[in-house]
Amino acid sequence: MKVLYLLSSPQRSGKTRWLQALLTRRDALGVPTYGVLAPGRWASVDGILAKVGIDNLLLPDRTLLSFASPASAGPAGDGGCAQSRRAGLDWDISDSALLHVNDHFEALLARRGELAARPGVMVVDELGPLELARGEGLRSALALLDAGPCAAWEDAVVVVRPALLEAAAEGLRDAWGEPEPLQPGSRVPRRLLGGTGWD
């Protein structure tokens, strides 16, 4: 049985922290995780903790990219944020960072036969309106998921906001079957740690 988990909850409710805890546990077991995590960058602004940026951590090699900044803060990184600005997002997502992350997913898909020697789980943090409503953004992550499970990653965990949950499920159902819902704070499915049931 191969499973697609959709990790969904409102913004700033701990989705990426849940994934980071999963990554830590998988690392301790010596099993790989493929894909991307999107940890936030936080700072005190006028005495209030605020999210001031979003990075992307490419897995399994742990390359860290500056990915996005608040739209009010001006352009991210290279100054090119055309896709996110066309979509009217709250974040300026660097076009060059999108290209880099898409290249990463294309490389993973191309190497899936080689990576089957060390099977892991695929993580995509996250699919949002660029991907699910506009066909932009992390198109290569969506293409990889559309290809379905394989020997390198039989299971996948995809972060998606509640408003896009049905669109994600509908779009990926043919490749993966009926997705399993997860929320931050959920017990970890043991199959994500190499077992069965829930931990």
Rank of each mutant, 00 (worst) to 15 (best):
A21K: 12
A133I: 13
L65F: 08
A50K: 13
D174L: 12
P129W: 01
R161F: 11
W91E: 00
T33I: 00
D125H: 01
A151F: 08
L4Q: 12
W153A: 15
P10A: 01
A38D: 02
G135K: 11
D155H: 15
P10N: 06
Q20V: 12
V188P: 03
G30P: 05
M1D: 14
L108H: 00
A117Y: 04
G128H: 08
L144R: 10
P70K: 05
V52P: 05
L89N: 03
K2C: 14
A97V: 03
R25N: 08
P184S: 04
G40E: 02
A169I: 02
S66C: 01
W18H: 13
Q11E: 14
E170G: 15
L37S: 00
A152L: 00
G35A: 06
A38Q: 01
G185E: 09
L115S: 11
L19V: 12
P129F: 01
G79P: 04
G120L: 04
A82I: 13
D174T: 11
E154K: 13
A43R: 07
Q20Y: 06
G53W: 04
W91A: 03
R118W: 11
W176S: 08
L142K: 07
V36K: 13
A117L: 07
F105G: 11
G88P: 08
P32V: 12
L130Y: 03
A28C: 02
Q11D: 09
V45A: 02
L22G: 09
W198H: 11
L132S: 04
A50F: 07
P10R: 03
G194F: 06
A21T: 12
T33A: 15
L64P: 06
F105M: 11
V36L: 12
A141W: 00
E166C: 10
D174F: 02
A116P: 04
A76C: 15
D46P: 09
S44V: 02
